[in-house]
Design a protein around this nucleic acid. Sequence first.
DNA 1: GTGGTCTAGACCACC
DNA 2: GTGGTCTAGACCACG
Lengths: 131, 131, 131, 131
Amino acid sequence: MIISIDVSNGLAIYDQIVRQIKFAVASGIILPGELVPSVREMAKQTAVNPNTVSRAYRELQSEGILEVVRGTGLQVSTGALKQCRKDRQGLIQERLRAVLKEAQQSQLEVDDIRQLIEAELARLNGKGTSK
Amino acid sequence: MIISIDVSNGLAIYDQIVRQIKFAVASGIILPGELVPSVREMAKQTAVNPNTVSRAYRELQSEGILEVVRGTGLQVSTGALKQCRKDRQGLIQERLRAVLKEAQQSQLEVDDIRQLIEAELARLNGKGTSK
Amino acid sequence: MIISIDVSNGLAIYDQIVRQIKFAVASGIILPGELVPSVREMAKQTAVNPNTVSRAYRELQSEGILEVVRGTGLQVSTGALKQCRKDRQGLIQERLRAVLKEAQQSQLEVDDIRQLIEAELARLNGKGTSK
Amino acid sequence: MIISIDVSNGLAIYDQIVRQIKFAVASGIILPGELVPSVREMAKQTAVNPNTVSRAYRELQSEGILEVVRGTGLQVSTGALKQCRKDRQGLIQERLRAVLKEAQQSQLEVDDIRQLIEAELARLNGKGTSK
DNA sequence: GTGGTCTAGACCACC
DNA sequence: GTGGTCTAGACCACG
């Protein structure tokens, strides 16, 4: 699992770690039962303050994504995969709703919105297949 | 023009003012050449410190949305309407692209995405017409 | 004499009036002994608050450019032409010095500066003659 | 980097800070990637309120000269050097053009202007070498 | 420790 | 009356 940090993108570093681990879990890159890198290890890898990694892990524990294995480290918990997928789905849905709502408030017709979306989907697919 | 502030939504107060004024300009609620409420007036209206309003107005000046008329107040500048509309459009497009991209990365099929979108659009329209 | 005011250029209105009258005197557009328009007249002409015109005239009186003719109005004083010319000269010289100094502080070589100047002079002359 | 404030020169304090930092960047006194003094540090150094320093830094951020490194400070951004140099050059050119234009409007012959300039350049150089 | 935001209250120039 | 600037002091999130 590779975590890459961008210090100057406005997002808190701990939050970048949280999101990327959730993403890794949702995508099956790291499976329930597997250990995440230790705080020190991750801190070295990402050149980040251990406090910050620790905070990210704490956050993930409180959300039930990670759980302590005494004397061993932190592992991805059993329900984490399903939860991360659902989170992801929910988050996407929420953001989709927000942007659609705003689009409508801006005098955009429903058909204009659909057109915009199809254009963007085509763009993404074009990029994806050509790669 | 009515500006409503929500102190506990995470967004900075000055930013809420900035956005709502841009929205008002983009929507034609306030036209180029018209004066925005004075700093003190707006501060009273929104129960916010005048400095905070001033900061929002300064931000809008530096973006070319507002301009000072010495001793008289701040007026919406000539190019503001077009600029705010374009900003708004660009912002929506960008956010749409981001969420669609993320949706695709989450193993959602294009048709699933379309279905989600239609559901959300229906929700919005239902809300709109029933109200 | 035509005075034109630009409310949104940052310069105080009264100052714009002061400068334009000095310019008119220096250029011989208005001669010593001639009356300037009355406060009310000028205020109407320029669509400016009479207080503001009054302030400009006061400024010009205190600099000795204008003088009261009791019951008649304000006239350009005898020494005004020479003084305005000198002022103008001095002001230009001062600004020239300031900009040259700054240019030198910015690692510009003397010859680069000369080149820049010649380019600008050519531009101005080109414009002037072609007009 | 030394920032010196003159409270009684008409220029706003925050603007003096902005200009001097731009100057320092343009001159290579402070390089892209380096941190500027912290808000509190700079405030102590210049005997100015931290808010005022903060405002100057905010201004520089919005112009893309500085960028935040969360919890660490503000660093000179990558493109800042080039940008500051260009700004500086453009500003000088603009002011040069303005003063030359005004000089010509004042019945000064081109050769008189050249003479004035050479005199000023000599003055500056004399000062520079004698120092 | 860092910057970001906000409030409160003051003074200024300009109209 | 208008905006612009500054100070003082407080609280927050982040590292």
